[in-house]
Amino acid sequence: MQLKKWLIALPLAMTMLTGCSVLEKLVYRIDINQGNYVEQQSVDQLKFGMSKEQVRFVLGSPMLVENGYPNVWYYIYYHTHGHNKPIQRNLIANFDPQGRLVEVTGDYPVSDAFFESIN
């Protein structure tokens, strides 16, 4: 009689423990996009010395401008695709005290034309 209980309980316990990981992949998860989606084409349009208004026109409004540091703009993009690992891309635009673009850092390379004149 004791053996019959084990023969039923053991497969039932194994099914319950493994079922969670298998069933999770069957549950649909929506794609989640948060922040500023920035394309490389937009970053290629940036030029040294652009005003804040010009940068806002090219890239859109920044995701974050810290209090006390108004000359550093953060463009952060976070994407979760279903059950895959999330992707985060960052772009940081630094301005001088006069509001002119002096540096772009992050996950997007600047173009070779970045230091050309903004005529």
Rank of each mutant, 00 (worst) to 15 (best):
L59D: 03
M1H: 10
G35I: 01
E66Y: 10
R29V: 00
E53H: 07
I76W: 04
P86K: 01
W6K: 07
P109S: 02
V58K: 05
A113R: 12
P11G: 00
W6L: 15
I87R: 14
R56S: 14
H83G: 10
K4W: 14
P86T: 00
K47G: 06
E66M: 15
P11M: 00
L3Q: 14
E24H: 13
G49A: 01
V27S: 08
D107F: 01
V55Y: 04
T105L: 03
F114S: 05
V58F: 02
M16N: 06
N84R: 08
F48C: 09
N119M: 05
Q88N: 10
T18D: 00
V102C: 01
H79G: 07
C20E: 06
L10A: 08
F48E: 13
P97T: 06
G35V: 08
N94L: 11
F57W: 06
K5A: 14
V55E: 08
L26I: 09
G82F: 09
S111K: 01
P86Y: 13
S117M: 10
F115L: 12
T15P: 08
V102Q: 14
V104D: 06
E24M: 03
Y69E: 15
D107P: 06
G35K: 11
L3T: 05
I92F: 02
S42M: 12
Q2Y: 15
E66N: 11
V38D: 02
Q40A: 07
Q40I: 03
G82C: 11
Q45K: 08
V110S: 04
G82L: 00
K47D: 01
N36L: 04
G68W: 07
S111A: 13
Q88K: 10
N94C: 05
I92L: 04
I118M: 13
M16V: 15
W6N: 06
E39D: 12
L59F: 05
H79T: 03
E53M: 10
P109Q: 05
L10Q: 01
H79P: 00
A13K: 10
L10Y: 02
Y75I: 03
V22C: 01
V104N: 07
P109L: 06
N94E: 14
E24I: 02
P109H: 02
N71E: 09
N90A: 07
Y75A: 00
G49M: 02
Q54C: 07
V43Y: 03
I92M: 07
Y28F: 14
L91A: 06
P97K: 14
N94H: 12
G35E: 09
D44T: 01
A9M: 12
K47E: 04
L10F: 14
F57K: 15
